Simulated scan of single mutants.
Amino acid sequence: MGTLGAGFSMSLDGFIAGPDDDTQHVFAWMFQGDRDIQVTIGDEDLDLKLTEEGEGQREGMAQALGAILSGRRMFEVARAWGGKHPLDVPVVVLTHHPPQEWLDRANSPFVFVTDGLESAVAKAKEIAGGKNVGVGGADITRQCLKAGLLDEIGIDLVPVLLGRGVRLFEDLGIEPVMLEVLGVTPDTGVTHLRYRVVKP
């Protein structure tokens, strides 16, 4: 059975994006290596430059991934990834109002769930078929954490202090959540941290 895990690039002071959803600083490490990796977002190609460690992290995650669970805000900010997520897996979007333009589109990789978080998680796991489900978006990650549904957290910690922007773990409003360290991998411009969420 796959895990439900969230993974983010994050500044040292806890931001996954700066003001206006600017991600240039938290994603800078993806362009500092010597290995050329091409990813496709919609119809556009993006050339990454990863280190050996970064490539290994990405490949391991991509091979184990069967679906993504996204919040509506993430879906909008990413502009629906141009119609195709760069990891090329189906995306389940939790929303109150599914966008009609995607509902009517043939061969859409997006599934819209309107009846709550647990239903969206169940749908994503069904689509993943035993592989992992990745959670995309700060708000839906916090929802999964509060509901006790999140199994793992991956943080690509970037040595920068953004000072303001979008925080990942803001206002959780829950008892302390204990995490077990699964891995710490130093890399150029980033440290890859992996945790298991310890559940009661």
Score class of each variant (00 low, 15 high):
Leu149Ser: 10
Trp29Ser: 04
Ala78Phe: 10
Glu180His: 14
Val26Ser: 04
Leu48Arg: 04
Ala62Trp: 01
Ala17Met: 03
Ser108Pro: 07
Lys146Pro: 01
Ile155Pro: 01
Ala67Pro: 00
Gln143Asn: 07
Arg73Ile: 12
Gly2Asn: 06
Thr141Asp: 00
Met178Val: 13
Leu161Glu: 03
Gly7Met: 13
Leu149Arg: 08
Phe27Val: 14
Leu46Asn: 15
Pro186Lys: 12
Pro109Trp: 03
Asp187His: 07
Phe110Cys: 03
Glu180Val: 11
Met74Gln: 12
Gly136Ser: 15
Ala138Arg: 03
Lys49Cys: 09
Gly42Thr: 00
Glu44Lys: 14
Ala124Lys: 08
Leu48Tyr: 13
Gly173Glu: 06
Glu126Trp: 01
Ala6Ile: 04
Leu145Cys: 05
Ala147Cys: 07
Asn132Thr: 03
Lys131Gly: 10
Ile140Lys: 02
Leu168Asn: 03
Asp47Asn: 14
Leu94Gln: 09
Lys84Tyr: 00
Pro19Cys: 06
Gly7Ile: 15
Val184Gly: 03
Phe112Val: 06
Trp102Cys: 10
Val133His: 09
Ile68Gln: 07
Val198Glu: 06
Val93Cys: 01
Val184Phe: 07
Leu161Ser: 06
Ile153His: 05
Gly83Pro: 00
Ser108Tyr: 05
Leu150Phe: 10
Leu65Lys: 04
Thr114Asp: 02
Arg196Met: 12
Phe27Ser: 13
Arg167Asp: 02
Asp22Ser: 07
Arg79Gln: 15
Glu170Arg: 13
Gly189Phe: 11
Met30Lys: 10
Ile37Tyr: 10
Gly42Met: 00
Leu4Ile: 05
Leu150Asp: 11
Arg105Asp: 03
Gly173Met: 06
Pro98Ser: 09
Met178Arg: 15
Gly2Glu: 06
Gly83Val: 02
Asp171Met: 01
Thr95Leu: 08
Gly183Asp: 13
Gly116Gln: 05
Asp43Gln: 15
Val89Cys: 04
Gly71Gln: 11
Lys125Val: 07
Gly173Asp: 05
Ile37Ser: 09
